[in-house]
Design a protein around this nucleic acid. Structure first.
Lengths: 190, 190
DNA sequence: CTCTAATTTGAGCATTCACTCAAGTTCTGC
DNA sequence: GCAGAACTTGAGTGAATGCTCAAATTAGAG
């Protein structure tokens, strides 16, 4: 809703402050007061630009996810490996933000919740892109099978991220590589 | 720390109330007031029996996990399939509580947090049991490899649960079956 | 019974939180 | 340079939250 330069600059400062805070003190430490203090703004200004605290948090998370997209133009040239590595890069590159992502998904009530709908759409889109890439690599595969394969692959990836968060010593990248190898092996058997 | 019958009965009522609330309104709806109201107890009584709200929540979650243990006596007779199915049963049988479990893990700060240490220990124990079962099925496998295999299997399982929470229409049980088949296939190739 | 310790109560503390709003100030298109 | 909209401020609201504690009550071992 910002129209003037001043508003756009304030908006940017608020988003920056939120991103920094999410990285430094996590979701629960990122209070409205903390965001406003760091951005050098009063709460009233914040609510002139955003409808809620949730909104700015989700924007930061969405930006972080998009930042590692291997094919932002959707030209359909990304391989399965690209997608797997990109998602792994999102997890390892911004672990705190990735945690917020998992946290939001898992905490979000199943219904009626705006942000969980947004994430669901995002998630489904990701599955589709995985499925497309799988079919691109194996033209003989039925669409449904490719989709199921994509769901499994992505679920496993999320599970590895989850495991890593529980246990930081977990060899996340090694397991991603191993899992990807397993996926290719299964694909090759036909 | 209940010593008298009255205390034990109150303790049970509080645990029951907590379990019901977690199932009905989730973690964020399960406030101290809600627990006490439902249990018919004042906050002071609660704190005479429990150190914190967290404690009772964790007890409920731990009980739910243990309730589906295929080999509670640790006699080492459970197969990989038993373990996979038991964990899947925990997820599908008590989805709300399972959600709390994932939520707690993912929300828990990495360090210093008591409950995340407890869950970590629990988690590591589960991985070990998976690894043992895998070795039991394939005696020629090195211990490290079995452990890594177990980690991957469990991570994928958690990922599927996560996916199901995000998208309730997801065919969780079908994917568990498929994933287990993939695991056996990979084990058999050697 | 009696005495001690377990239990319960009821009031309330201290804090934090997201959010609001009327009143001023600044920007910018015209 | 003016008018009106965008923006900012500052002070505040109200509703939670988890938790505490002195005092009253009750259970149960001896």
């Amino acid at each position: 809703m910002a129209r003037y330069q001043a508003g756009l600059r304030t908006e940017a400062r608020i988003i920056d402050a939120t991103r920094e805070l999410l990285g430094e003190v996590g979701l629960e430490g990122t209070t409205l007061k903390a965001i406003c203090d760091r951005a050098g703004v009063r709460a009233g200004s914040f609510y002139n630009l955003f409808d809620s605290k949730e909104e700015v948090v989700l924007r930061v998370v969405a930006e972080a996810i998009n930042a590692v997209d291997p094919d932002p133009d959707r030209s359909g040239t990304d391989t399965v490996k690209d997608l797997v590595l990109a998602y792994a890069a999102f997890i390892t590159g911004q672990p705190k933000v990735a945690r917020i992502y998992l946290q939001t998904v898992v905490s979000g009530g199943l219904t009626g919740n705006d942000q969980s709908k947004r994430f669901l759409r995002h998630h489904e889109e990701r599955v589709s892109r995985f499925a497309d890439a799988i079919r691109r690599a194996d033209a003989g595969l039925a669409g449904d099978d490719a989709y199921a394969e994509a769901e499994l692959l992505l679920a496993a990836l999320n599970g590895l991220a989850f495991h890593w968060m529980l246990q930081p010593s977990f060899d996340f990248e090694g397991h991603v590589a191993r899992m990807f190898a397993a996926h290719e092996w299964l694909r090759a058997r036909t």
